[in-house]
Write a protein that binds this DNA or RNA. Structure first.
Lengths: 255, 255
DNA sequence: CTGCTCAACTTGTTGGAACAAGTTGATACG
DNA sequence: CGTATCAACTTGTTCCAACAAGTTGAGCAG
């Protein structure tokens, strides 16, 4: 006899059937009671198995509707071109990329004065708790939450580029606006990590259990000092990042 | 009355207590029956709440032992220096970094001839299914599984650098060995994504529910053609990656 | 003192039951 | 015909009960 617990056998069988497209993306699974009959198990046991698949990010459940196989359309963000003046873009990089992919971008802005969190203050080389301008941004693609972004600017920089502290979008792109005021970003330090979302993040990004977030923290530098620190939180199931580094003539695509 | 389900209240209360260090990292939580008494709930309800925290990666459980608050010691990998001949390292980059952090590295190798998976073949610009050399590697830090790495080399490259197909480590580092045979990696294309582990990955990396993996795929290029494709699977809770790009003199640390 | 056994914990698994709440389509009413 | 209602689904939440299985420390035998 199989020594795997029954709820695991249920999960394994269904996972296999999802993998070989017995149940394709977007398709509905049989109901809990039908599965219970099929596997000769109680509803509780079947639920435990389904729960496993939910927390693996393979399926979602909604009350009254049933279980559905998740579909994965990833959006790729080129981090090495992002905010790079050598790759000129009309507006901000996000809208350009999304529109180019034939999707509809949408974003909401919020600007605040905030004491810089310890982690940010360290990277901006300012006193912990000293006020910084925080530009916060929620991004959507086809009205699906995609990412949230928080950018902190140190006080000295805002003095030289006052529009940063004004509410509203900066049409020409922040990088370009800063460059026009003599603040040129000559390098950056990116840190990338992943974890499960906090309940707050899960709410904002509309992700249930089983979907991790991808965290991207970029500290941009002028020739003299760090100029801004951007923390982006992506839905892990919908986003991928890439970097093109070095001489990539062999790829035959780069500019 | 509170309209949150009880198991969620349990999870929220415990999450708050973990956040404010009522229960610190490594510490044990009260047992399920104690928590049931405290929250006036059944053991099942408490379990549902604890399960939520497990799938958020906050705690782990082990049979007979109880629930423990996870501790997070992240290891940072500098992806932009990795495999970069401008930053010479004695052996391979991984061992050097780990030793420098005062930890004990350990790795196991496996070399095979394998048909290249579709995704890899596309990036190496070879026919799908054509044989490639696969060098597979499991890495440990202080005997804790850290990452698995699979590197595919196209057939033409192995002809010029035959030691790739031999079992066993390449002491001086593969990048250096390739350079000595006239195969110089002048650029690379990195792709980074995250998802929940497959059961297979969960077993290899010894991660339970609630810990995502960080996927790093690097395609290295010579001046003429793609030379290798490396897929690394990290434990998401233990690893962070970073890129230093551009002129970073302002950071005052770079070489 | 050493080493083994075992009782008393812990979580893991599985079944059962009942009711709450969201969704949908058939049906009856205006 | 259009609409409102409701029955029959779905999953969500909560309890109870019992036994399996891993861990640990007390206590006993050698």
């Amino acid at each position: 006899m199989n020594r795997q617990p029954k709820y695991r056998q249920v999960a394994d069988a269904l996972r296999r059937e999802i993998d070989d497209s017995t149940y394709g993306p977007g398709e509905r699974l049989p109901s809990e009671s039908e599965l219970a009959k099929r596997f000769t198990a109680s509803r509780n046991t079947v639920r435990a198995g389904l729960n496993l698949l939910v927390s693996e990010g393979l399926i979602t459940s909604s009350q009254g509707l049933g279980y559905e196989v998740r579909s994965h359309e990833v959006f790729e963000l080129n981090a090495s071109r992002f905010e790079n003046l050598n790759f000129p873009q009309s507006g901000d990089a996000y809208s350009t990329d999304v529109t180019a992919a034939g999707r509809r971008p949408h974003q909401t802005f919020r600007v605040e004065m905030q004491p810089a969190p310890a982690e940010v203050a360290e990277r901006l080389k300012v006193e912990p708790g000293s006020t910084a301008v925080l530009r916060h941004c929620h991004r959507y693609v086809d009205d699906v939450p995609w990412s949230t972004q928080a950018t902190y600017y140190p006080g000295w920089l805002v003095d030289r580029a006052p529009r940063l502290a004004q509410p509203g979008d900066i049409e020409e792109g922040t990088t370009r606006y800063l460059a026009a005021h003599g603040i040129e970003q000559v390098g950056y330090f990116d840190e990338i990590s992943t974890r499960m979302p906090t309940p707050e993040e899960a709410r904002l990004l509309e992700i249930g259990a089983g979907v991790p977030v991808l965290l991207w923290q970029r500290t941009g530098h002028t020739a003299d000092a760090p100029a801004r620190c951007t923390i982006t939180t992506f839905r892990g199931d919908l986003n991928r990042m890439n970097y093109e580094i070095g001489d990539l003539a062999a790829r035959g695509e780069s500019l």
